[in-house]
Every structure is written in structure tokens, then in C-alpha cells.
């Protein structure tokens, strides 16, 4: 589905990602774990076409997208739920969701997906006419995920969906991610809660200071002593 080859992302002189290669196959749930500043967010931003790529290639469905603008990447079925949620606070919940479907022309399908998102997150239905800026952090996260789903993506990239949320809401959000995975949506998940991410994922990459340190099936990672020590604090 998506392949990243030797990606280097640099902001000014600072390289946030250095020669990262990774791959997510159709229907897979892959997670990127690593500490702050390891380059996880920059990798996702590069795939979406909003990070300055210095070198390397990004290939989606066999077609190079490295230099394409973000709207062309969304058009290829990629949805990105960014770190920090970035919901549009001055827009209503429903307007935020409709923006997720910005490129879609099939209004019947959009309506159907809107109902589906409201079924997944009933809280959003209750608050659909409220400004997104007035929602709680957990509700904003639900909105951000719902908004990403509205494009009916084939590849869903989630950046720190559990950050700063109460355990109960984290549980709810991860059960939705699990459900999407079972429905066959390809998912690339960046998550600081490594234990949670590894339990859910098929495969994992460990990033350290902008480079891939380890890669392999998620179940093996959980048992890897290095990973346990550094990321699972055991």
C-alpha cells in the first residue's frame, strides 16, 4: 500500500528523519514507536506531503508520490489524523466531519459514513452543532479520528491518538482502531503507549533519533529485551 525508501526530512539544517525505510501492506496494522523526537510524526507528515523531504522516495500503490501536494495524496486514499488533533475549533462538529469528506462527490456515501461515525462516537452526535473548540480533549480526539474516517480512507495514519486522554477513552478509541483493522482498513499508527500499540499491531518499527533501529512482528517486539527495557519500562 505504502512504501517509504531512504526518507530524509530536514527542517532547515536539522534532520528529523534520516534514511528511514518502511512499508505497510494492504490491510496491515503497523505501528511506529520511539521516544519524542525520534522522527515518527515527521515520517507521517512526509507521507502526507506536508514535510520538507530532502531525499528518498514515497510510493503509494506502486506510484511515486514524493513530490505531490497533500490534496493529491488524500485523493489516493490516505487519511491523516495528526498529533494534537488539530480539529477546527471555530467550526461545528458536523462541519469538521464534512471537511474530512472534502474531496468526495458521493453525497449518499458521505451521509452513510457520517451516520457510521456518529454510531462509533455517540458523543459527537449529541454535540454535532457545537463548535469543536468547546469539546473536551477526549471528544476532540474522537472528532479527529471521525474526521479522518470521513474520507473513507484505504490508509489511515493515526498520530498519538491516546495522548493526554483518560484510560477509559483510550480504551474506547483503541477498540475503534481494532474494529477498523478488522474491517480491512490499512493503518499506520504512531503511539507513545508502546505496550498498547504492540498488542494491537501486526508489525512494528522502532525509531531512534530519526533512524529505524528495529523492525519486525509486533509480538516479537513485546518479548525483545531491548524494547522491553527502553519502551515498555519492564
Amino acid at each position: 500500500m505504502v512504501r517509504v525508501e531512504g526518507l530524509t526530512v530536514a527542517y532547515g539544517g536539522i534532520e528529523a528523519v534520516r534514511g528511514v525505510s518502511l512499508e505497510v501492506a494492504e490491510g496491515e496494522l503497523v505501528t511506529l514507536i520511539g521516544n519524542n523526537g525520534a522522527g515518527k510524526t515527521s515520517t507521517l507528515m512526509a507521507i502526507s506531503g506536508v514535510a520538507p523531504i530532502r531525499s528518498g522516495r514515497i510510493v503509494i500503490d506502486g506510484e511515486e508520490t514524493t513530490k505531490l501536494p497533500p490534496h493529491a495524496i488524500v485523493a489516493r486514499g490516505v487519511a491523516h489524523c495528526p498529533e494534537g488533533r488539530l480539529v477546527f475549533g471555530r467550526l461545528t462538529v458536523q462541519e469538521n466531519l464534512r471537511l474530512g469528506a472534502y474531496q468526495r462527490k458521493d453525497s449518499a456515501g458521505v451521509k452513510q459514513d457520517l451516520d457510521r461515525v456518529y454510531a462509533l462516537f455517540p458523543r459527537l452526535l449529541e454535540r454535532r452543532t457545537q463548535l469543536a473548540g468547546t469539546l473536551s480533549g477526549g471528544e476532540q480526539q474522537m472528532l479527529a479520528i471521525g474526521r479522518a474516517l470521513m474520507s473513507r480512507p484505504r490508509l489511515l495514519m493515526l498520530d498519538e491518538p491516546s495522548l493526554g486522554l483518560a484510560p477509559l477513552i483510550v480504551q474506547r478509541i483503541f477498540s475503534v482502531i481494532q474494529q477498523l483493522h478488522e474491517e480491512g482498513v490499512t493503518i499506520l499508527l504512531v503511539e507513545q503507549n508502546a505496550h498498547l500499540a504492540l498488542t494491537l499491531a501486526d508489525r512494528a518499527y522502532v525509531l531512534e533519533t530519526g533512524e529505524v533501529r528495529l523492525a519486525g512482528p509486533a509480538k516479537q517486539m513485546i518479548d525483545n529485551p531491548e524494547v522491553r527495557k527502553a519502551y515498555l519500562s519492564q
Binding site: 501536494p69 490534496h71 488539530l86 475549533g89 467550526l91 471537511l99 472534502y102
Partner: peptide, 23 residues
């Protein structure tokens, strides 16, 4: 309108608007 809502979104957060596929 679709473009009008996109305009308000982009005014609020350009990067997030681009991630929504807004040109």
C-alpha cells in the same frame, strides 16, 4: 458552501486543512 467551509478551516489551521485534502 463546501469551499466556504474549507476557507474558514484553512484560515484557522492551514496545515490541518491541507491534510483534509483541501487544495
Amino acid at each position: 458552501t463546501r469551499t466556504g467551509i474549507a476557507m474558514r478551516a484553512a484560515a484557522e489551521n492551514l496545515r490541518a486543512a491541507r491534510l483534509m485534502g483541501i487544495d
